Computed example of a mutant assay.
Amino acid sequence: MESWTKTDFPHPDAALAEAEGLRWLAAADGGARVAQVRHAGPGVLELERVRDGSRSAEHARTFGAALARTHAAGAPSFGFVPGQATGFMAGAPMPGSDAATWGEFYASARVMPFLRRAEASGAFGARDVEVICAVVERLAAGELDHPQPALVGEVARLHGDLWSGNVLWSPTGVVLIDATAHGGHAETDLAMLDLFGAPHLAEILAGYQEVSPLADGWQDRVALHQLNPLLVHTVLFGGGYAQAAVAAASRYR
């Protein structure tokens, strides 16, 4: 089988972390298909080459069901990263966490670190920071906690960067690449699919719900779960992502 080699990493250990994450996702029984890791070393990751295929509604629905099983495979804790390497996000080591709840984890390890980086770059004014910090306070207090999908226990096994560009459509179905795998809330992966317009999103969600129904009110929490990726993109690219992050946060303050 053909392979391709990725060398564009912010740190040599990021290649090892991504490889461990892909293997962890692939270990989920009946879960979403993940590009096979052929070799991993510092700064180098060799994966199977995924051939292009049609973006069919049938494949989308099958992928949704498989993703539900990946999430249900679980993780030991919020913020858990598989393997020995540190996870990476937005070009920097991923913040660890010993949080007991999702809200505490999301506030301390996914919102605040990237808010502070974006603020330091000048992307946010004082009023913007105030809005997002108000949401952080509610998250940390547990006011915005909500149940996982039906088959997930306390913590879901997440891809962690599930935007449409990391969802490859092969002739036999969807294959995932470029994971930032960790333990978190399943709705985060689904919100990321929504944020950047995954093809056949309605079918993906339908397949997911057939296997593991989402908790009531999930539609109203999509923007909450998009707050982290919007902050990450503010750090990386600036522009309109900063105001999109503030608009998302405003719904929950």
Rank of each mutant, 00 (worst) to 15 (best):
G30L: 01
V235S: 09
S121T: 04
L139K: 09
R38Q: 10
H185N: 03
L67W: 01
G217W: 02
L227Y: 11
A100E: 15
V129A: 09
A120F: 00
R51W: 07
P93H: 01
A72N: 08
V175E: 01
V81T: 14
T7K: 07
D189G: 08
A150K: 14
F196N: 09
P147I: 02
L231A: 01
L205P: 01
A57S: 14
I177P: 00
T172C: 09
A247H: 09
L236W: 05
L151R: 13
P199K: 05
A72M: 02
E187T: 03
A14S: 11
F88S: 13
T101K: 05
H233Y: 07
R117L: 13
T86L: 12
G31R: 04
Q209T: 12
H59L: 04
A75N: 12
H185F: 09
L201P: 04
G183D: 07
F80W: 14
P82D: 06
L67P: 05
D178V: 11
E143L: 12
E48D: 15
G153Y: 00
P213E: 06
P147T: 08
A57V: 14
L16T: 04
A223T: 06
I204K: 06
V155E: 13
T86F: 00
H146R: 15
L158S: 03
L47A: 09
Y208V: 01
W24H: 05
E2C: 02
W24D: 14
L158C: 07
A126M: 03
G207V: 07
P95F: 07
V152Y: 06
R253W: 07
P93F: 10
F9A: 12
S164G: 01
A107N: 01
A191I: 01
I177V: 15
A223Y: 09
G153T: 00
